[in-house]
Design a protein around this nucleic acid. Structure first.
Ligand SMILES: [Zn+2]
Length: 561
DNA sequence: CGATTTTGACCTGCGC
DNA sequence: GCGCAGGTCAAAATCG
């Protein structure tokens, strides 16, 4: 987990050093100027960095994007560290720089000095005689030593920054979520009341909002918040015990929200007297056994409905997200030669979280992981990241269904969101369960569906004009690979109606252009579009995946079986 | 030997 | 009611 970050950073160093070396007078300033904008976009930059990187990387190694990406991904997942993460980190670092400007001033100045010295020496060396060379060597040695030192320090800072950024990202997501929720319920009444209201509102659109779900979200958020606050200082020192912090945080959160977990468990128990083990999930049994508790049912059903799927390139059978999973089933998906695997969280007996893993039929390097439910137990940091992200995404999705969500859309934000084009969030409320799809695949496009922006308009006449218009211009280029079952755009696309039939057939979904650009869809779009959300989400997930913790390797190997 | 995976049976919702 | 498809269960097989 933590280590992963460190490693990642290590890789990024070369890059940074590169910049610094070149920096001198001209490069430095320019670079910084660019950074500022990014800084503002904090989350975006993270996401963007990953996206942007491809271009950057291409310059360095123009060779094969596809291959390269795939490889990185693979390495990534299987081990941890390398590739994408690094890129991301770099971006993160850059961004962070601004944020942490205070702390960083010292180091940065050092860098400048060092660089300058190098530059001078180099110049001198070239022109001067041998005697000077000796001096230069000495000086060089010193400089190098200093340089190393600086790099080390830099690394530390980077680590700090990355941590902070991650936390920040997560926090931001939660914040966004909360804000939206807040807006939705202008009046602050009891949660139940709120919930009910929400439900009623939601029902308009057929989307059900889960009360529990909403509560849960904050729960994870709380934990994370705590984590952020405390650890930041600690991590700065690089003490290698992040888990402790997290655990504490999570414990606190749990204590606070204990009600929820208990609630869940009670529910489960009621459903299944014999095996507490789980199954709380089973809708069937719930209906049979607890017909009396409509509320709970609805809640559960709702929660169950919310899904967050992550598409990422990975050749590993499963991406490591920090959780322990037990496979409980496998089925052949209808339109896909690749089987779909069902996993459930085994970190806690009653944990309702489940996930489905399936490979994209079109591009088998893409692994689609769909998460469902929220953990009701403490999670290790690595797991926290993914869990909080998914829960936040899910909550966003749900809250997004609400009309009041609008207003969040901010042109600037939108622009930012789109810039990072790499990550896309797609909301689909159509199916039995609303799903947020985060696309971390950013390959140029193996399938080559590159479609020019204009095409988007064509295919999606149904989309709200503003949305379409906004997205179109901003999409630099489409990326497009036809997604697995949802079409993706550089921005996000949302489909909210669609018959169930389409859901059934993933491929059919593409055309899914909602003829209904009803208010709801617009609102949803707005929310989804919220850059902070998308970017943060993408960034978080990307980092999570990249940051796979040690276990990942074991998991991978096990899965191979 | 416990934990996990495999895998066919089973269940439920849905469209016809 | 039937068949299909998505999910889940759980006994048996494996793994570590
Ligand atoms: Zn769990």
């Amino acid at each position: 987990m933590e280590k992963g970050w460190g490693l990642t950073l290590g890789n990024s160093d070369p890059v940074s050093s590169f910049f610094h070396n070149k920096t001198n007078s001209t490069a430095g300033p320019v670079f910084r100027l660019k950074q500022h904008p990014d800084m503002l976009q904090f989350p975006v930059s993270l996401a963007g960095s990953r996206e942007d990187r491809p271009g950057t990387s291409s310059s360095s190694s123009p060779a094969s994007d596809d291959n390269r990406v795939a490889v990185d991904e693979v390495d990534f997942f299987s081990d941890k560290k390398h590739g994408v993460v690094d890129e991301k980190k770099t971006g993160t670092v850059t961004v962070k720089t601004e944020t942490t400007s205070h702390g960083r001033d010292g180091p940065s100045s050092d860098h400048l000095d060092v660089n300058t010295g190098l530059h001078l020496l180099t110049v001198d060396g070239g022109k001067s005689s041998e005697t000077e060379d000796k001096r230069e060597k000495n000086a060089l040695a010193e400089l190098q030593a200093e340089f190393k030192r600086v790099n080390a320090e830099n690394q530390k800072l980077r680590n700090m920054i990355s941590h902070v950024s991650n936390n920040y990202t997560a926090l931001q997501m939660h914040l966004v979520t909360l804000m939206q929720q807040h807006r939705n319920r202008e009046a602050k009444s009891t949660q139940e009341h709120e919930i009910q209201e929400v439900k009623s509102e939601v029902k308009k659109d057929e989307v059900v909002v889960p009360r529990q779900f909403m509560e849960l979200v904050p729960h994870s958020g709380t934990a994370e918040t705590d984590e952020m606050t405390h650890p930041s200082s600690e991590e700065r020192t690089r003490s290698g015990s992040p888990p402790n912090n997290v655990e504490v945080a999570s414990k606190d959160s749990i204590k606070g929200k204990n009600e929820i977990s208990q609630f869940n468990q009670e529910e489960r128990d009621g459903k299944r007297e014999e095996s507490p083990e789980s199954d709380g999930w089973g809708p069937n049994k719930a209906q049979k056994l607890n017909p009396a508790k409509p509320i709970e049912q609805s809640t559960e059903a709702t929660m169950r409905k919310a899904r967050v799927s992550v598409r990422a390139r990975s050749e590993a059978p499963m991406i490591s997200d920090g959780c322990q999973w037990r496979k409980y089933g496998q089925k052949m998906a209808k339109g896909n030669p690749c089987p779909r695997a069902y996993y459930r969280c085994t970190m806690a007996v009653g944990c309702p979280v489940r996930k489905q893993v399936q490979r994209c039929a079109e591009d088998r390097t893409i692994l689609i992981t769909t998460y469902e439910g929220n953990h009701n137990h403490p999670l290790p940091p690595a797991a926290m990241a993914m869990a909080s992200t998914t829960s936040a995404a899910a909550s966003m999705l749900l809250s997004g269904s609400m009309p009041s969500a609008d207003g969040i859309m901010n042109p600037n934000l939108l622009a930012r969101t789109i810039l990072p084009s790499s990550s896309m969030a797609t909301i689909s409320a159509s199916a039995p369960f609303p799903t947020v799809t985060l696309d971390l695949t950013q390959s140029p496009n193996p399938l080559k569906f590159q479609r020019p922006p204009p095409q988007f308009d064509g295919p999606f006449p149904g989309l709200p004009q503003n949305l379409a218009s906004l997205s179109a211009p901003q999409l630099p280029q489409a990326f497009g690979q036809p997604p697995f079952n949802q079409s993706k755009f550089s921005g996000l696309q949302l489909s909210k109606d669609m018959g169930s039939s389409q859901l059934g057939h993933p491929q059919l979904q593409q055309p899914q252009l909602p003829t209904l650009a009803d208010k709801v869809s617009a609102a949803t779009a707005a929310i989804t579009t919220d850059p902070s959300f998308t970017a943060a989400l993408a960034a978080a997930i990307t980092s999570i995946i990249g940051g796979a913790h040690p276990n990942s390797s074991s998991n991978t190997s096990n899965n191979d079986k």
